[in-house]
Simulated assay, not measured.
Amino acid sequence: MAEHKYKFDVKMTCGGCRGAVERVLKKTEGISEYSVSLEKQEVLVTGTIEYDDLLAKIKKTGKEVRSGETLI
């Protein structure tokens, strides 16, 4: 299965918000690498996971996902 890169604009206001998103990503199968930037309000993910599944995982944290896109 091919790897994809995704970028999400996620509203995060503090380190706790970032931590919540990181915890969900860390235990999600199909993710090979990720980075969460509180400053940029940005979540970058590389993996074989489908876009919709990943979006649902991030939304489960209760954070507002303002936008998302597939880069590759």
Rank of each mutant, 00 (worst) to 15 (best):
A2L: 11
A2K: 11
E3W: 00
E3H: 05
E3A: 04
H4P: 00
H4Y: 14
K5L: 15
K5H: 14
K5I: 15
K5M: 15
Y6M: 10
Y6P: 05
K7I: 14
F8D: 01
F8T: 00
F8H: 00
F8R: 00
F8Y: 01
F8A: 02
D9L: 10
D9M: 08
V10I: 10
V10M: 07
M12A: 10
T13P: 00
T13F: 03
T13G: 06
C14K: 06
C14D: 10
C14E: 06
C14F: 02
C17D: 05
R18S: 15
R18Y: 01
G19F: 10
A20S: 12
V21W: 03
V21Q: 06
V21R: 04
R23D: 15
V24R: 11
L25E: 05
L25H: 03
L25Q: 04
K26V: 08
E29Q: 14
G30D: 09
S32H: 05
S32F: 03
S32T: 13
S32Y: 02
S35T: 12
S35M: 07
L38I: 09
L38A: 06
E39Y: 01
E39Q: 09
E39W: 01
K40N: 15
L44Q: 02
L44T: 01
V45E: 07
T46N: 12
G47E: 09
D52F: 01
D52L: 06
D53R: 11
K57A: 15
K57D: 13
I58K: 06
I58Y: 04
K59T: 09
K60N: 07
T61W: 06
K63C: 05
E64K: 13
E64L: 12
E64N: 11
V65E: 08
V65G: 08
R66A: 13
G68W: 07
E69I: 12
E69A: 11
E69C: 04
T70N: 05
I72F: 11
